[in-house]
Design a protein around this nucleic acid. Structure first.
Length: 425
RNA sequence: GGAGAGUUGGCAGAGUGGUAAUGCAACGGACUCGAAAUCCGUCGAACCGGCUUAUACCGGCGCGCAGGUUCAAAUCCUGUACUCUCCUCCA
């Protein structure tokens, strides 16, 4: 959420920068108008309340000295009615202002490319060289099905499309991958967490998914209580400190967690219908940071390096891109995507997304810190995948496949596979 | 699922209709070579509005949250969240 006061004081710049994210400048004009009306109404309300407070004190004094306050009470009855009326109007204006402001995306950082969509993304660096195959590489779902380690058919029968079973060494590989990731992040100073996998609306609001993106999630209703299946562990990890004021000395805080992520994938019908790329439920190791504002961009570089470290140790080719204004997520000011090489598709596919949200989430979730002078400030939050586990397994299966259909286990994972060096039929 | 108790400032803790005691902590000062102790003073989170370059200042709000009653609500009423205890159930 953006600061309305800041928008008001920098209207022209805000309109221009938000326009690069698809916000109609007229909406900002409307917001500023409503805010003006809101502040006028606050002044009216507060004047009335001041009067009420003053006269109420007189009434109290009179009553204590057994005086007659009938006239004053009659007068105050009128003031009370006015306050009620003014406050109703104020609540309405507040709601209108909030309606707009909670749906505005974060301000894009000045360093990112401006453009309508992914075509404007900028490649920062390319690491590793895609392997030359002496045979036609198979897609990972074929490899997995042939080896009997991935079962999409039964996933569809038991749950539906975009669900699967991992089986035998497939399940072991998935577990090896995320255990490896968690161990690496632990070395980098992240505290490992196991979070709730269902959250309330306040949490979904805090990180920016709600109210705008309700269609993207799965929710459950029990006894009229609605909960949301987390679309990413970013939600519980970032809401961990919701509504709290941390001490400056606590910062930075680094969290990591493995969790399933549940996504409805509404609007992506027909895309990536096969394999591990786009599922309703997938595992992901997430990284979240709470940092002081002046450090957030440096921390973004470090977090991205932490995600890259995983790919490098797995010896998977990838590149890093900076998302353009049009391709970036709602809460982010700057995002690096890591895309891993998928041989069968001869292309790079997203496997991690690391974002600096500045104070956008902190303002929504009211997460603050107290500095050395005792002053309270919003802090900055970052989140990144480190990495999407299912897509990592897909990349391993495809990049490490052999002509005979077997898959060599990446060196760093062998200890996590209890010594298994190759997955064969 | 049933029954009961609770939620007040950084912490402890009073307050059952008249506008948030008190203690500790914190901050400033005195004393001291310095510190402790003591004494004096200040401050009760955060937030919002006004006025400001910014402080300051003025006002509002503020007793888990949301409503209601009232001239006036921490206090009365309704709903709700969470915590604790007991029963039930359960991994």
């Amino acid at each position: 959420m953006l600061d309305v006061k800041m928008i008001r004081q920098n209207q022209a710049e805000m309109k221009q920068r938000l326009a690069t994210r698809g916000v109609d400048p007229a909406e900002i004009d409307h917001l500023v108008e409503l805010d003006e009306a809101r502040r006028d109404q606050i002044a009216v309300s507060e004047n009335l309340k001041q009067k009420r407070n003053e006269v109420s004190k007189q009434i109290a004094t009179l009553k204590r000295s057994k005086g007659d306050a009938t006239d004053l009470i009659a007068e105050m009855r009128e003031v009370g009615a006015q306050v009620k009326q003014v406050d109703e109007k104020l609540a309405e204006l507040n709601e209108q202002v909030q309606y707009i402001v909670v749906r505005l995306p974060n301000l894009p950082d000045a360093s990112i490319p401006v453009g309508p969509d992914e075509s404007a993304n900028h490649e920062e660096r390319k690491i590793g060289t895609p392997r030359e195959f002496a045979f036609t590489p198979k897609p990972h779902w074929e490899i997995g099905e042939n080896l009997d380690i991935l079962d999409f058919e039964r996933g569809a029968k038991v749950a539906g499309s975009r669900f699967l079973f991992y089986k035998g060494l497939g399940a072991k590989l998935e577990r090896a991958v995320y255990n490896f990731m968690l161990d690496e992040h632990e070395k980098e100073g992240y505290t490992e967490m196991i979070t709730p996998y269902m959250v309330n609306d306040d949490s979904m609001f805090g990180t920016g998914q709600f109210p705008k993106f309700r269609a993207d999630v799965f929710s459950t209703v029990t006894d009229d209580k609605e909960m949301t299946m987390i679309p990413t562990a970013e939600v519980p990890l970032t809401n961990y400190y919701r509504g709290e004021i941390l001490d400056e000395a606590q910062l930075p805080v680094y969290f990591t967690a493995l969790s399933p992520s549940f996504r409805s994938e509404a609007g992506s019908a027909g895309r990536d219908t096969r394999g591990l790329i786009r599922l309703h439920q997938f595992n992901k190791v997430e990284m979240v940071k709470y940092v002081k504002p002046e450090e957030s961009f440096n921390e973004l570089e470090k977090m991205t390096a932490n995600a890259e470290n995983i790919l490098q140790k797995l010896e998977l080719p990838y590149h890093v891109i900076t998302l353009s204004t049009g391709d970036m997520g709602f809460s982010a000011a700057k995002t690096y995507d890591l895309e891993v090489w998928i041989p069968a598709q001869e292309t790079y596919r997203e496997i991690s997304s690391c974002s600096n949200c500045l104070d956008f989430q902190a303002r929504r979730a009211q997460i603050r810190y107290r500095d050395g002078e005792g002053k309270v400030h919003l802090l900055h939050t970052l989140n990144g995948s480190g990495l999407a586990v299912g897509r990592t397994v897909a990349a391993i299966l495809e990049n490490y496949q052999n002509a005979d259909g077997s898959v060599t286990v990446p060196k760093v994972l062998i200890p996590y596979m209890r010594g298994v060096e190759k997955i064969t039929k």
